[in-house]
Design a protein around this nucleic acid. Sequence first.
DNA 1: TTTACTGCAAAGGGTTTGCATGAGG
DNA 2: CCTCATGCAAACCCTTTGCAGTAAA
Lengths: 153, 153
Amino acid sequence: MLTQQVLVERMREWAVRVTPQRLAIAEVILNSTDHPTVQQIYERVKGHFPSMTLATIYSTLGVLQKSGLIQELPFQKMSRYEPNMEPHVNLVCIECENVIDAEASHDVQDVVLGLREKIAGSSDFEVAWQRVDFYGLCPRCAAAKRRGELSEV
Amino acid sequence: MLTQQVLVERMREWAVRVTPQRLAIAEVILNSTDHPTVQQIYERVKGHFPSMTLATIYSTLGVLQKSGLIQELPFQKMSRYEPNMEPHVNLVCIECENVIDAEASHDVQDVVLGLREKIAGSSDFEVAWQRVDFYGLCPRCAAAKRRGELSEV
DNA sequence: TTTACTGCAAAGGGTTTGCATGAGG
DNA sequence: CCTCATGCAAACCCTTTGCAGTAAA
């Protein structure tokens, strides 16, 4: 969780203006753990800025992404936004479509970093960031499926 | 690279009809290594089926995905399609937007599989498949950037 | 013969863009 | 003050859907 001060500094580095709207949007994302969609961000900010439109959200998301503060995660229907720039694993439930970070162990982080170094060592590809998604059933949906409550695919 | 016979068997398992169009589309993807977009698949098939439309491509892609033969990789602008269902790493160039598989070493595959087991062991999440993307500059674009040919971002 | 696929056209919807107004530096 | 951001509306374009004709089994 980033303080507002750090936020302002990072935005100033990119020569972008620090507006109340941008701060509100940034705080919503950076304090989230559910990888919100644009719509969800919109709903969470609307309380403070009733006149804000999606165009402002999209614009701000672009700024935050270029600043390296967040990562866009495109999915089939729409994008979600990831505030956790550390190497980690996302668990994507293919049933309820929730997305959470896998239990943050240093192990996992080290493994992903190790993968990066392995790739860097065996090719000339310069890795800047990564996205690791595991798709499957969350505990809740897996249990429901066992009980036959879900459509069998 | 899958033989046509295996392809037919897999499709029959899903009780879908094996049409010449589907076979052509499947062969294009399964023999590709550049993670083609729908447009690229369309262009590569059009020679054999001039009357084919994108609707048929999309329909077939859905069938192949449900059959577990390919994986859709959503990106910001559009999706690409991945014929390699083994655990591996995709290298995504943020400059030229090419996507290639990282050098296929058993090491990398084992590491990704190890990650899966680690996640499975520490949570009740049932992993079905995964997507591992490393974003950065491919050797060609990295060199161009060093020569100052690319816009400094 | 029956069922499902192809091809065509139109609709859908997340995201982007253009522009006038308004606010940050 | 000047430049850039916001908000509104319209455009964009990838993708999905509906339907009539056609081909697989």
